[in-house]
Design a binder for these strands. Structure first.
Lengths: 137, 137, 137, 137
DNA sequence: GTGGTCTAGACCACG
DNA sequence: GTGGTCTAGACCACT
């Protein structure tokens, strides 16, 4: 399910975009599967249909989905590998930016490496953070 | 020196904030040193004084600087260790967010580890990316 | 046979309209011949009967076909010359619009002439474009 | 000046897009020139700002303009040649579609050639069409 | 002042 | 039912 964080500063329509991309990547919707209609999703997420429509439009220009007139939106038949490559490229860009800003703030590469290790080592448990060493302040 | 990227999407005043924080961390300005005046910096960076003023305001609320009426802005007398801890905490939050979004996009922890290693291994050369393995696709 | 391109942006019912007009012009159906019923055509093209019905309606208002209650749709007894003149008029209108928009975009009349020559010179082969000179870049 | 035809069926925001593209191509706005603000243009064309904003967004994704936060929209510094090539490619696609539909309607290549010649030969005079031969019906 | 986002509600074309 | 377009008006962040 897609979750919307209204106070995160991230535009809602982008959260919808990312949420749907994840579901498609995760196999919730296979190639040429029909996505929920704009109105349905808008009701489900208690959003304005325009906001959802904007997300769908974004996904269309990204080539992730396509529309059939009067029938709805469908998952574009790209291979999972293609989409993984796309996702990986985006993450790499973000990692680079993060590293750059961290270095500018004066952190050493070694401490960054440690931080990565700590954060990555954590299991995705909902409650309780095993990395208290990092968390304390 | 602070460099401003007008088309990076990052608000200019935040670029100024980060730039000044780096200079302070780097020792360009010591505790209780006077920072350049808003006007001076605005002229130096060819920015609107309002933008620089907003950055200074932000730095004040962050506790990094303080103002003396009629005299200007001064570096708050925190220890360098304190500021490093602050910076580290911020980076950790960002790393966590990045990891979370990457996992949601379907990347494995192992591939993430690899990406970190690759990007971290890169020397901070300005031009040219040594990590062609990652860059190509 | 009529071919439907679902993702061409052209409304499906208009594709049906044009397809039938071509068949009538081509002599597949002569004056006062009975056209396939809406249901038959819908099944044959795997379309919604509503869509085909709308195409027939359009053709009726265009004067290309007429209906007999309970019997179906029939080709209106216009001469082939009349229909050709109609078709020609429509094409001329489109050509004018195209030229106008091209001129507004800054193309010269001479380059337009060249483009026409190139595109017209192409044989109506289904696959492969002989005009690589234009296509490449 | 941009003119909007409300009853042409063409979405208004696309008319704005094409209008601005023409003005940029025509040199009304040079590289890195500032375009009228969304609100200004909306008032000038008596459109809703949202509609104009959508046109500007479209132009941004097309790479024709770029935004500076808080300052407005500016013409992207592409060469006129690049833009001409783009425009030419689009026109070629349209010409091909037009020819194809004309052939399907039964017109011969020769008559098409004649129509092109007639329409192209016409000078862009506002009133009176010299091509009465084609116009009569 | 600038653009960006969101909501609300309307109308339309299409299937 | 579907999405597409448009308007109106609100609030926000940034310069």
């Amino acid at each position: 399910m897609i979750t919307i964080n209204e106070s995160s500063g991230v535009p809602i329509y982008l959260q919808v975009v990312e949420g749907l991309r994840c579901e498609i990547l995760g196999g919730v919707y296979g190639p040429d599967d029909r996505l929920p209609s704009i109105r349905e999703l808008a009701v489900g997420l208690t959003l304005n249909p325009n906001t959802v429509a904007r997300a769908y439009q974004e996904l269309e220009t990204l080539g992730v989905i396509y529309f059939k007139r009067g029938q709805g939106a469908f998952v574009a038949p790209h291979t999972k590998e293609e989409r993984m490559r796309e996702a990986t490229k985006e993450i790499i860009v973000k990692v680079r930016e993060l590293i750059e800003s961290a270095l500018r703030l004066g952190l050493s590469r070694d401490s960054l490496r440690d931080i990565f290790q700590e954060c990555l080592g954590s299991k995705p448990e909902k409650h309780g953070q095993p990395n208290d060493r990092i968390n304390r302040d």
